[in-house]
Design a protein around this nucleic acid. Sequence first.
DNA 1: CGCGCCATCATTC
DNA 2: CCTTGAATGATGGCGCG
Length: 647
Amino acid sequence: MEFFFIIGMDGVDKEKVQRIVYEMSKGSKYFENEQRKEALVKQKIENMCAKVKKLTEEDISHFQMIAVKRILELEASRDLSKIWMHIDMDAFYAAVETLENPSLRGKPMAVGSLSMISTANYEARKFGVRAAMPGFIARKLCPDLIIVPTNFEKYAFYSDLTRKVFRRYDSDFIATSLDEAYINITEVCVKKGVGSDEVAAELRKAVFEETGLTCSAGVAANHLLAKVCSDVNKPNGQFVLPNNEKAIMTFVSSLPIRKIGGIGKVTEHILRDVLQINTCEEMLQKSALLCALFSRCSSDFFFSVGLGLGRTDTPEQNSRKSISSERTFRATEDESFLFQKLGDIAETLSNDMQKENLSGRTLTLKLKTASFEVRTRAISLQNFIHSKEDILTYASCILKEELPLSLRLIGLRMSQFHDDNNGPVNSTQKTITDFLGLCEGASPSAAWPKRQDCTSFGDKLEKHDGFHFSDKPNMPDLNVGYSSIDDKTAANDDDNHFFSYESHHSDCSRTAEGINRLNDSSLQLMLFKTVEGNQSANSNEPQYMASQKQGLIWVDDYICSDCGIELPPSYIEERQEHSDYHLALMLQEEESTNNRVHQAQSSVDGAIRVELGTSQGREDTRKRRKTSKKEAKHIPIESFFSKCKQS
DNA sequence: CGCGCCATCATTC
DNA sequence: CCTTGAATGATGGCGCG
């Protein structure tokens, strides 16, 4: 298992780097978790392979027809009329630190901490030090490494300087982070009557003169390609991909899929191992299979990649959809410590929300256990909250349900905003006409995960909701929707510190009154409790469960006798969970037939969770549900947070 | 069935 | 000092009207 792909780094002893990373990692809880996740990906890949094998000739020709049709549609939407430039600052944080402390120049150095590196300069990269690598491993790779703590104000300051330059070329340029931006230079090229290569060189020169920092530029017909191009001659270089189809197709034909924004480690792995897709070109060659295996949205994205299509428009500014705060600490079970942390997080979250005058009605608690397993629990309220007290009241309520547990991270996220200034929920909503306009502009999304606007198309104007967009697999057009994740530094100068803009929940104290306002969701929580109470009174149930566990049969040591799901013998835990699931279902049925009020049914979750809570460690309930029914295909992939970055 | 809601996963910097 | 923090979107299950 490798944590980092060592890409294009001449002079790096890859073998040695990998060995050291492995030595440092193996045996740790983190490592175990990574292995667990890897196994799940492998399983998913096997399932998909099986699915491919089962496809008949007819199936394939059927999908082939669909694929060809969609590819033609996409091709027809190609827009070569714009010239986009993507700018990526070189080792930005490290470069800024070096600028302010020239003694660092020429020495291997990284920005971050011993637990995590944000950016490494090029000297450090020679040793294999990378962003997203923990500092203690980086030190092992490069004992002389200087690690400088992050200082975001500095970076924001220099980022602003670069943006002043960008603005001169495109007043509507799109900043995607402190160190990256998309700039539409179509007009500038025309006005100055020069080629895009000259414009790029000029802009980079201006950036250097006004900031002392170097950057790399990529020029192409759309965002997706421009971004790839800016990486080609990094650092301090540029690459122009001419706006003609031939050049684009040639470029794309040998391009490894991993270079594309939106295709990460897992997707790369799946595409390679299931369909032998390594280059973007092969996305088109395997189009029928892609159609067969992936959703419309995903397969269309893959085809776009194969065609070298991407966004060509400047989306209107998207407003924030959620705000969150989280903290990692040494794993502990100490509840008073955990609740104190929760309070801290609630406070920073509340402060952050006040800065932007936000109020939300969905609160999500995020936990990471000592074994690196991530769980989230959310509640939606009827009213909008923003005060520390309110947040803490509800958050504590959810957290209690999960304890006891050894945790290494707690996080809180608020979403479903009510913005004071703009009236209820998201006024910057697109109208249907806007949506169609976007579609006519054609371009499929530059990044894969963009179907948000399709959804709001179906919605009424105000309905837009932040956290989750339900699915419409059969929307007429894929598309578009863009998250211009601008930094907090951008434009939030509203110094309105209204503590009570909605009188009825402004100064609610965290105890009595807070609890009184508990609504539906909190009611559900209460229900959990009720069930739990019943259960613990019923003390013979655990044994009953234990005896039943052996009752379930794995046909051919592989297939569940009850629902047909396939789980290899080596998946001991998963099997255990699976039988627990059936058991919980049974108990559930028993209970509901035994006069149980419909309330109990509506909290299946709670019931299942509680039962399992006593039979063994608390496990996730969703997984069980997922494995129910015919849904044997998708064992969920766990997320990786180790990255494969090069910049 | 469509929608709201929840949980998990993937991705990015 | 032993694997970050913030944000977004996709996907999919479940319950409800």
